[in-house]
Amino acid sequence: MATPTDEQIIDELGLRRERARSIYDHPNLIRAASVLCFLALWEVYGRRSDPLLLTYPTAVFWAAIQLIRTGELLRQAAVSLATLGVGFGVSIALGVGLGLLTGRSRVAEAVLDPHLNALYATPQVALTPLLMMWLGLGFAVKVVIIFLFAFFPILINTTSGVKNVSASLVEVGHAYLASERQILFKVVFPAALPFIMAGIRLAVGRALVGMVVAELFTAITGLGAMLTLYGNLFETAKMFVVIVVFGLLGVGLIRATQALETRMARWKETERANR
């Protein structure tokens, strides 16, 4: 007689039952209910409150429509994103560059390390007034502030990634007559890439904080400046629009870097899973 299949055994034992329904089968329903309840309560309570202090969801929605229609939101967002892009780009370039240097050379590390540590220990935001004094209130100062916020996670992760590259892989490079340059680009950099990507993921959130801080204080252009402006005008609904945009930006940027990270470090992920 043929061995019965799993299905047959289940039927024979009468185990084919409907599983009891559980509220956990649809977590998104719970989430949606939670959010809807919250919004409804906010709407009801918010309408009764002082509009100068608290707003309510529909008011925020109409404010958003208005800000989009006048083009203000998109214009300021474009300014913010441009600054963020440049500042973050500089952070990546310098963070990875210096990280490779301090990770590879112990002398370079000894020279740079004390200064970098001191700068890292200082809450970077405390330096903004000085930077504004030096660089004015324009594009440059914002880029520098974003850079200061985002640079360190990238630098620290790159350095530790490079130090983690196993000596035996570097030795393989030497055995196959690779030059220092080839070892850096064909062995060390790819091996450290997962660490570097993790640093970039950490840094993107901090870059966003840097952007907000820079724009709050310079208060001339960008989404952060809108926040200061509408705060002074007591237009709470418009402030909420900007905060929501920041939230969406945060989620979007973090998601994007996460996706990039898994893509670029695929061999690492599966390697870990296999162990």
């Binding site: 035996s168 892989l169 393989v172 062995v187 091996a191 690492k268």
Partner: peptide
């Protein structure tokens, strides 16, 4: 050289 731990580049 052929290495004890293979020395393959995992990426």
């Amino acid at each position: 050289m052929v290495f004890q731990q293979f020395g393959l580049l995992p990426w």
